[in-house]
Design a protein around this nucleic acid. Structure first.
Lengths: 343, 343
DNA sequence: CTGTTAGCGCATTCAT
DNA sequence: ATGAATGCGCTAACAG
């Protein structure tokens, strides 16, 4: 597999390297006939330009980095798919930075990304400090956040309407006649979770229901904490006990449902449950979970397109680019079997 | 962010480029004192060698390609995690090739991978033709298959014991007293599915149960086909109707369970169901699914390590390497609530 | 429209 | 132990 170089093609075609290079780069200023001849030659000999050489000469690569935290793979699959669907139509490739533990996050940022390996960066759902990313962005590396709701960050981002989603979920419960609606929260360091609680609180307030702190429980990401919280809710005296639970995530909702059933109550007959995310499995859980769907795939697509736009747009220190675009995609309520009218 | 080059470091340290280069490559023939001085300088100025330049000069990159088919993301998450956990301890990065549709598979193989972008290739669960991969491998690009049970392929692979897993699943049902055990198959083009049917058939035969073709149904990957197959099974006269179903995958099992319940029967009371894979969601499905666990994460780890070994091992046309290593990882039966003794 | 000439940043001989 | 020279394969002015 003696690799062919551009020089070989040049010799074979009787042209010079530069002309061949022009062909490679689709330059209009090359004779269509010779152009076709060269292309044919390449095809015949299975010539492929050396990536490293191209990158070096150009001064930039055609790779985009994608940072995804290890723990959120279940959400990330769909995002990835969306990203991939637009990337594969381009000349770019994805290079994947997964940090399975948090410690090497800094290494990833400081060392690898500084090596000019990627032309842009997609950062998926994470709660690491954003300062390093902002610095990179200021230094000219396009960065797009995906599902990282960092309100204070000075970075372009694709997010979903967490507030609206939560609000709609609670509205749904209210319309079913529920009045005592609990909330089992996720990690409140995440702005998205803060938004969800805000949506919950506001929806209740708008319905004229006064806030009851005892109905808002910490959940976190651990099934045990969620179980504890759920038991705390169930142990309330009957007339103060919630008839419905809004969970900050589908995973949380699963744990809530399991705890409810373990304690001899039925979902949705005794307690309705709404989740958030619409993971693929939520359709198969029994009862099938009513939940707020996040358009993950679409988010991935939009994020990739935004990133490409920024990359192609050049340094673009225009007035418009100083205000980083922040696209919020709508969520939708998927009503299934885990919610019903209040008994 | 005017990027520093090796030349800058050389100037600052009063040395020549080549000496600095020697430091970068951990050459023993450089004075420990100067070596430390140079390293310190690099640290201070946040110098990182240009990846493309290094790759070009060396003639090889420190990237490993990972081909994953778009449709199997749910399985792939855990594999990825395993791969990432070993890659992040190395100097390599992952570059992700996802083909969301099958058409560009050839393009991926022929063009991108031939561009010397990756030092090795990890190919995850796919059913594309393997010839191109074999060719690449012969041409010196290390390739490792993950969960692609291609019995006839001349490539190193990490697989799981599909036969043994299926066998164990059916044994489990037999021990519960079931005699009429159906099988809802996956895509039979996949060798792994062929193995699963073989395990099913053999386990029955060993128990002295004669093969009943009507109990083996096509499932494929579509929920509707599975539903059809399940209804066909349920519509058998009561004394020929199966009391248990072995499904080729968890997803298939979900659809089987739903169809069973739609028709008014109960899992596991009327019909026991066993899946294959142990997706994360199988724990949350109701009834929680009894299934055969594949050690996805471990597969990813092993695959990455095998790939590294081959890369570092050089061209290695030894006698041992002519016989491509084929590691089969054991599966384990996870008993949950979807199986019970026969009524 | 096409060829000439210089690099891109680094690794790697060969000298010293 | 360190420096000078050369080339990896390609792009990008600048000429013609």
């Amino acid at each position: 597999m003696a690799r062919l170089t551009i020089r070989d093609i040049a010799r074979m075609s009787g042209l010079s390297k530069s002309t061949v290079s022009l062909v490679l780069n689709n330059s209009p200023r090359v004779d269509p006939a010779t152009r076709e001849r060269v292309l044919e030659l390449m095809r015949q000999h299975n010539y492929v330009p050396n990536y490293a050489a191209t990158a070096l000469a150009r001064g930039n690569t055609r790779l985009i980095g994608m940072i995804v935290p290890g723990l959120t793979w279940r959400l990330v699959a769909a995002i990835n798919y969306g990203v991939a669907s637009v990337v594969e139509g381009s000349e770019y490739e994805i290079i994947l930075y997964t940090s399975t533990n948090d410690r090497n996050y800094d290494r990833v940022i400081e060392r690898i990304l500084a090596s000019k390996l990627s032309a842009g960066l997609l950062v998926v759902t994470h709660n690491q400090p954003l300062e390093p990313l902002e610095k990179l962005h200021r230094d000219g590396l396009p960065v797009v956040l995906v599902d990282t709701l960092a309100t204070h960050a000075d970075l372009p981002a694709i997010v979903t309407d967490n507030y609206g989603g939560a609000h709609a979920a609670v509205r749904h419960l209210l319309e079913l006649g529920h009045r005592r609606i609990a909330c089992v929260e996720g990690l409140m360091e995440y702005p998205c979770c803060q938004e969800r609680t805000r949506g919950y609180t506001d929806a209740l307030a708008e319905a004229g229901i006064s806030h009851r702190p005892e109905l808002v429980q910490a959940g976190g990401f651990s099934a045990e904490t969620v179980a504890d919280s759920t038991r705390a809710l169930l142990s309330l005296p009957k007339r103060r006990r919630p008839t419905a639970v809004f969970a900050h995530s589908d995973i949380t909702a699963y744990a809530v449902m399991e705890t409810v059933e373990d304690s001899g109550l039925k979902v949705p007959d005794d307690i309705s449950v709404v989740g958030f995310d619409d993971l693929a499995s939520s359709e198969h859980v029994r009862p099938a979970l009513t939940t707020v769907r996040q358009p993950f795939e679409e988010m991935g697509r939009q994020a990739a397109e935004l990133l490409f736009a920024t990359i192609e747009g050049g340094p673009g220190e225009t007035e418009a680019s100083r205000q980083p675009p922040r696209l919020s995609l709508p969520t939708s309520l998927i009503v299934r079997d885990s919610t019903s009218t209040v008994a």
